[in-house]
Structures are given as structure tokens and as C-alpha cells.
Design a protein around this nucleic acid. Structure first.
Lengths: 335, 335
DNA sequence: AAGTAAATCGAAATCGATTTCGAAATAATA
DNA sequence: TATTATTTCGAAATCGATTTCGATTTACTT
């Protein structure tokens, strides 16, 4: 491994001068700077990020914490889209991205412990469940944090307006004539409760009501659960004319269950999803859904987090994005 | 930030003893060890990975390099499945996982430069194109590396047997009576050439031949390209009875193109994919495809890489996995 | 030529750990 | 009790950088 000491020896200057030359200090003669830079290149020198981080107290590293109910991690389509975009922007600002787990080797470590150990400069959290002690420990810490799809007074957040999203979908179904609607919601997390509340309000605005009997619990990003819950629903004496599902993946399960039950979509039953992940528009029928702009969410999250890290007076903020509706082929007028 | 110096001061021992107590050295009295551990807990101490890495010359960090033609990164379904599994196993061995890009801030940095800078202990590479100078620089370096879906004398690899995979698919179509088959292959990378060669052999074994006119270039994991290439193909005077596609995603494009052209699958044309990603079995029609066991590939890759890092006499090795065929609903007997 | 200002360089301290080796304290033995 | 062996501890060097501040050299003025 080539260090500044090696370079110093090779060209007869002190390590101090080498460091200064490579970091653009003004008190280095242009000629020596050239010499030092050249020999550094020739010797294949790369600064050691550890040594740098130790003295500068900055690791140029951002942690990522993903935790979903189904434990699918990075294969979660929405999270993956957000992370990919987040990563690109973070990298353009000079930060690397490292996954944060709650163990290191065989010993369990809290998430906060892991962050402190790895000395990440900031953290992005995307969880389906924000209510665990470990997450709260993070939210209470002074680590710069940006949370995805959540809202909390303690940290900055990037989220999509539930009211807008649920209203877009409900109104669409309402305008198609549907009154008998069921919502297959996800695990009862913050965001789920928020969406249910929004849904009820959206119904009220149209002079309807959305009752608890119209709610059925499914799981986020679980095709399997979407399938089984929908199967059960279809065995009832009276089936709804339209079904809203918590996300596009689970909606796919519901669609498959309908097809396997001999129904065709949208002729026999209308189904809408949520999130607008890429695959949702590649399926047949194309799912009618609400698009969360994952790319923009990831980019905004990264920009905000970088500001939180680099500017000490940057304040916490909840960035609420407005969703848009994607009209697919999974809904039809109720005749 | 709490350091061993703080702990030392707090309980009247030297930093040396604190370090030893926390690291299980035998020359520390049991009573002092307890005292030190307790105050470390109370003060919320976490070791600083940078300082540790600097002196121990080991970062407990593994780099991930993803590079695909479409630049979809982490949203690549197969890569995501492999990485998720890789990550879990790597973490269980105590390693964190960090993405490696080729820039740090606004200055471009070679991949190898980035690895040296971040001092990763090893690297996992999944690329569609292994032929760039930067990748070769990595393969020639002495960094422990595991490559996914590639084969190279310089590094260890985890790959799936192309011959077996292509034969499974070809034989399946052959047995269904198909003779007029087209292969929509991916970009002409190592693995693509390998598969084409395998396909030709598979045909020969059945007394047939697979000619270059039966090959059409598409792109990996590009639904769009699959769609457009298939559209073009269907405008020919005579369309094939079966189409093999380089992956399940691109196959989805081909399926959609067929449907939009008024064909139904598998009645009018049979289509097979490759990889067996999860979504492929959730679509209707379910795609007939060859399954690369992504979870196992990721796990094996991690285990091998950890061994390469930790055992100096561990030798390079190419782990070839046997694929299996998944019979879906996208193929039918040629009448 | 002398004095001042500016440019150029390097010694040493520092970041937070680990590890060697010697010193001191305690225990074991003669 | 004196001697030896064993525990227990800590001073100091080290990893690879950065940064302060003083020293030296060079350039500029009069």
C-alpha cells in the first residue's frame, strides 16, 4: 500500500508537503506540486479513507436501513427504485452508501450502535414498521436522518400525500359508479392508518362512508397474501364491485386470485394498486394505480440528507410529494 | 463520542487495559474487566471502526459493483435477489456491504481506486459487460473478488451452466414439436456468447442446426427492447413458432408485443425466458423459463469471498450451478 | 545592501484504536 | 523470609492521514 510517507521519501519532501500538495494548499510551489502529483500517480497512490475519516471526523459514508415486513429487503420494487436514485445522488455528492444491519458478525448490535461503529455521516430509513425500540433509538439520536414514507417530528421525511393518493383512487372508482368497495390494506403501521383515514375522508367528501367492514388486512409487497386474502373475499356471498389494494405487488396477487376464480378483470371486478412501480405498467392488465415518484423521492431524500449533514443550521423538514394517478386497464364502469 | 480514553479516565485504568478488557485479553483481572465493560455500556461506547481498521488493516467491509447495460442498478430483479442473499450471508460473517461507484464527489475515480480508497476487504462484481478497462484493472489486481455470471481465470466466479440451461429450454421446445425457433439474445457479452454456443450445440444434439439468422439482438432486462424487437420479428412474412428470450423481463416485452399484435400465448406462439426471477411466476401467462437459483448464488458467492479474504491459501474457483426448468404456461405443442 | 514582506516547507500533535514489552504487584515455592 | 513464578497493568509505538505554527528561503522595496 502506497502512503504519503512513501511519496515523501520518493521525491524528497516531507509528508506534510505531500499532503498539502495533494489537497490544493496554496503554500506549495507549483513545481513541487507537479512533482508530487506525478509521483503519486506513478506509484499508484490512493488516500486511505479510514485515516482521513479519523482525523477529519467525517466518513463520507451514508447508511441505508431497509426493513420490511416480508423481509424481502432490496428486492422490494419501490424501495429498490428509491434507493437506486438515492444512491446516484449521494454518490454525486461524494458519499458512499453502506447497508446497516443490526448485527455485526455473531454479536447483535443495535442499529444506532452499528451507525456509530461505522461512523456514517447520515442515515436513510425505509421501513414498514417504525415503531420498534431500535428505530426509536435512532429517531431520538442526533444522527442526521431522512425517513422514507413516514412522518415524524424528530427527523426529516420524504413522503407522499396519502390524502391526495387515496382520493385520486377513490374518486376514480366512484366516478366509474363503484359504491361497494373494499380496501385490502397493509400491516397497521403509521402509513397504513394514514391511508385508511384518508380513504374515509375521501368517501365522506362524496357523501359516502367507508366502514371498518370494508377493510381487510393484507400485507405490503406480498403477492401471496394478496392472493389468499382475495380468494377469501371472493367466497363471500356478495362480492364488492371494486377492490383497492395497498400496493401494486399485493394487487397482483389479488388479480391472480380473481382470474383463478374465473373472474376477468376489469369486466367482473375492478382492482387498483398503489405505488406505480415499473412492473405494474408492464403487466396485462395494466394496473390502475397511484404513482409515487420513486426516482424523485430518492433524489430529494439524498439532497436533503446531504444538506442536513453539511449545513449545521439546516432544519428538519417533511417533504410531501403529490402523487398522480395512472389509469390502467384494471378498472371498468360499473354497469 | 465516547472513546477508550474516556472510559479509561472514568474508571482509573489505562486505555491499554480498557482495550484489552473489551477484547478478551487474558491479562486483565476479572473484576476490572467487569468494571470496564459496565462503564463502557453506561457511557454508550462503540468502537470506532475507522481507528480499528487503520491499525488492524482490515475494514470488515465488502464492496459491491453492479453495472448493467440499462443502468437500472439495484432494480435489476436478478441482481437484487442475488445481492439480498449475498448481503445476509456477508453480514452474518461480520462484513458490511458498500456500493462501489466510479466517482467520489465530482472527481472520477477508477473502481480499483475506489476500492483502495475505501479499503474494502473484497469485492463482488455483477456486470453485463466485463470487458471494460476498469473491470480488467480490477480482475488483474490482488483484491479478493468474486464475479457473478462470468467466468475468468483471474478471479473466482459463481455462474450457472449455460449448456445445461439452454439445453433444458431447447429440448423442451423441441419436444413440443418446435423447429422454427428464434433466440432474442442480450448484448454480445461473454455470457451471451456462451449461451449462443450452448444453444447451437443443443440443437446439434437433436440433429438440428441453429443458424445465425435465428439470432436477433435484444438487451438484457429491457422490457422495451424486448417489445420492439418482437414487434419487428412479427412483421416478417413467416413468424417462428417459438421464441427464446435472454431473460424473463425482456421476455415480458416480447409477450406484450405478441398480445398487442393480436396473438395469444401460448396458442399462437410459444415464448420462453431465462433466470426464473420471482415475478416471472406471478405473471399470466406464467413464463416457462430456466431458474438460476439467485438465493443460492448470492450465498455461495458470499461464503467463497469470505474464505478468499480470510484464508490466504484459499484458491480461486469457478462455482458452476445447475439450473432447473420451470414449466409455465407460455409454451404449447406445435400442432 | 539592508530591511521587510511573501512564499515555501516541515516538525510535531492529533484522530481512536491495537499491541509489544517491560514494570509492578501478587502468589507460589523453597 | 527470600526467591521465583505468575498476574496484572501501562508507556509508547503504530496505522495513514491532516493541520497548526514556526523556521527558512526567496522576492521585493527603498
Amino acid at each position: 500500500m502506497v502512503t504519503i510517507y512513501d511519496i515523501a521519501k520518493a521525491c524528497g519532501f516531507s509528508p506534510t508537503t505531500v499532503s498539502k500538495a495533494l489537497n490544493g494548499y496554496s503554500d506549495v510551489k507549483e513545481k513541487t506540486r507537479r512533482l508530487i502529483k506525478q509521483t503519486a500517480d506513478e506509484m499508484g497512490y490512493y488516500p486511505n479513507s479510514q485515516a482521513k475519516a479519523l482525523i477529519k471526523r467525517k466518513a463520507w459514508n451514508i447508511g441505508v436501513l431497509f426493513q420490511d415486513g416480508e423481509n424481502i429487503g432490496i428486492t422490494h420494487p419501490l424501495f429498490a427504485e428509491i434507493l437506486e436514485s438515492f444512491k446516484k445522488v449521494a454518490e454525486s455528492h461524494g458519499y458512499d452508501v453502506t447497508f446497516i444491519s443490526n448485527k455485526i458478525g455473531d454479536t447483535r448490535l443495535s442499529y444506532l450502535g452499528h451507525c456509530k461503529y461505522r461512523q456514517v455521516d447520515g442515515l436513510v430509513i425505509a421501513c414498514t414498521d417504525f415503531y420498534s425500540d431500535e428505530i426509536n433509538e435512532l429517531l431520538d439520536s442526533d444522527l442526521p436522518i431522512i425517513a422514507i414514507d413516514y412522518s415524524d417530528e424528530r427527523v426529516s421525511c420524504v413522503t407522499t400525500d396519502s390524502m391526495a393518493g387515496m382520493t385520486l383512487l377513490y374518486d376514480h372508482l366512484y366516478d366509474l359508479g363503484h359504491r361497494d368497495i373494499v380496501y385490502l390494506h397493509g400491516e397497521l403501521t403509521y402509513i397504513t392508518l394514514d391511508r385508511i383515514k384518508a380513504l374515509k375522508k375521501a368517501a365522506e367528501k362524496r357523501g359516502e362512508s367507508f366502514n371498518d367492514e370494508q377493510l381487510i388486512e393484507a400485507k405490503y409487497y406480498s403477492v401471496k397474501t394478496g392472493y389468499s386474502v382475495m380468494k377469501e373475499l371472493l367466497q363471500r356471498d356478495e362480492r364488492p364491485t371494486a377492490v383497492m389494494v395497498c400496493d401494486d405487488f399485493t394487487a397482483l396477487g389479488a388479480i391472480n386470485a380473481s382470474i383463478d376464480s374465473g373472474l376477468s378483470i376489469p369486466e367482473d371486478i375492478s382492482i387498483v394498486g398503489y405505488d406505480g412501480i415499473q412492473i405494474s405498467q408492464l403487466l396485462r392488465p395494466r394496473v390502475t394505480t397511484v404513482k409515487q415518484d420513486a426516482e424523485k423521492m430518492g433524489a430529494l431524500a439524498a439532497e436533503k440528507l446531504v444538506r442536513l449533514i453539511e449545513q449545521k443550521d439546516e432544519e428538519r423538514e417533511t417533504l410531501v410529494m403529490l402523487p398522480s394517478i395512472i389509469i390502467g386497464d384494471s378498472c371498468k364502469n360499473k354497469e
